[in-house]
Nucleic acid binder design. Structure first.
Lengths: 232, 232
DNA sequence: GTCGTAGTTTGAACACGTTCAAGAAGGGTG
DNA sequence: CACCCTTCTTGAACGTGTTCAAACTACGAC
């Protein structure tokens, strides 16, 4: 499963109302137990029992235990967009918009911090479909990048036109960095991650502003060329 | 095991020559099988059988299957220091030294790229003792940071004195970033990671050089203050 | 030589994720 | 109503990581 993926016996999309209901029941039960006991301490048997179905039934709808988490992932992403929309409507300063969206991302995920670690563990594995870089999560990634495109485009920021095209992806990458820090953040209520955001945003803002200066321009070009060469 | 660590029934350090021998035999067998078949495809039973011992014996010396990998981790780190030493003796230009050490890091790990992903998966989990940020791998981390301190101190680079103290840690962090990219790098012979290093090093070099300029100084201070606030 | 103890080794047993062949429900078609 | 076919459900069985009580080994003390 690790070295060769692809064999994932794709779980079924429910085709009937009954199916949809069962799927939702299993998912809700799983999420509840994950929150109550943690991911590792929640067995598939426990989920099935609590949901009142057979173990195999869970595997009819979800290819694996980890795939149960992917659901929460896309759910939280939608919620992230919602909460960001408020800030984006209010602000038009680039730094304020970026800061708002980053904080919104933390807000949305905060309730799951305790088992986000487990999710992250899987996501970090390159062959995993849950990896934020994988083809399988490409739609989710694109949606997230689109959010940062909106941060930029709705703002008054003046940016090197060539950088403008790639900046949303870079901001998304920075967001991934924030998440990475957040996952490891053991401080109370993850306040340190807030500090990181509040400290990093002005720096990014200044950097982006500088990108247009004639002296810095060549460096900007260099960076852009590099990330183009590195993209998959 | 995920949410609450600590319970790790610590595996024994061999106290006799016989023990030392068995431990080494198990480790060698495991590493061979990992390379031959990949991590996931290698069962503890297979390791035990091939090594000619009982399954339980492997667990006497290694707390878990993943702990077998930690051994390779510290081994590769020693090898990284060795190989870096050659470059560090030859060069005294900061960029050249940094580039050399980063490439050495990739060289050393290249043979294990196929299953480094699995290792990384575990290392990414915050609660794991294998995490490069964990207390348990603190000695390894310190050793690695020391390597980057040598990169800096043996060089002719002029650096803001306040930054000088923290720069090695930042370089180590950049190295972690390179490794992160490398793990996900699917290009032939991971040539893209080489591109990343060759592209990023001049940028870092320029940035470090700028840190002393009167205009940039306040930003430098800001960055330093931020990373101090964020350190655990 | 016998005993005691620390160190080592064993393999059956356990828990959990996952699979799969068999069957049940549901509902359209004649 | 009888039939078929898709969709869904079941739970026993499998493979694998891990545990543990019991046994074995080595070796110094007496």
């Amino acid at each position: 499963m690790t070295e060769h993926s692809a064999t994932t016996s794709a779980a079924a999309e429910p085709a009937t109302a009954r199916g949809e209901q069962t799927r939702q029941l299993i998912l809700d039960t799983a999420m509840r137990l994950f929150r109550e006991r943690g991911y590792a301490q929640t067995t598939m048997r426990a989920i099935a029992t609590e949901a009142g179905v057979a173990v195999g039934n869970a595997y009819y709808y979800f290819a694996s235990k980890e795939h149960l988490i992917q659901e929460f992932y896309s759910g939280s992403q939608a919620e992230h967009r919602n909460r960001s929309a408020q800030v984006l409507r209010r602000e038009n300063d680039f730094a304020a918009r970026l800061r708002g969206v980053l904080h919104a991302g933390i807000d949305v995920n905060a309730p799951y911090h305790s088992f986000a670690a487990t999710f992250f563990k899987t996501a970090a594995e390159p062959t995993s479909p849950l990896s934020p870089f994988s083809a399988e999560s490409s739609p989710a990634r694109e949606a997230s990048i689109a959010l940062f495109r909106e941060v930029l485009e709705g703002s008054t920021a003046k940016v090197d036109p060539e950088l403008r095209r790639d900046l949303p992806e870079l901001l998304w990458l920075a967001y991934m960095g924030v998440i990475l820090y957040w996952v490891h953040d053991r401080s109370h209520d993850q306040t340190k991650t807030r500090t990181l955001v509040d400290g990093a945003v002005p720096l990014i803002d200044r950097l982006v502003g500088l990108s247009r200066l004639r002296v810095v321009r060549p460096v900007t070009r260099e960076v852009i060329a590099l990330i183009h060469a590195l993209r998959h």
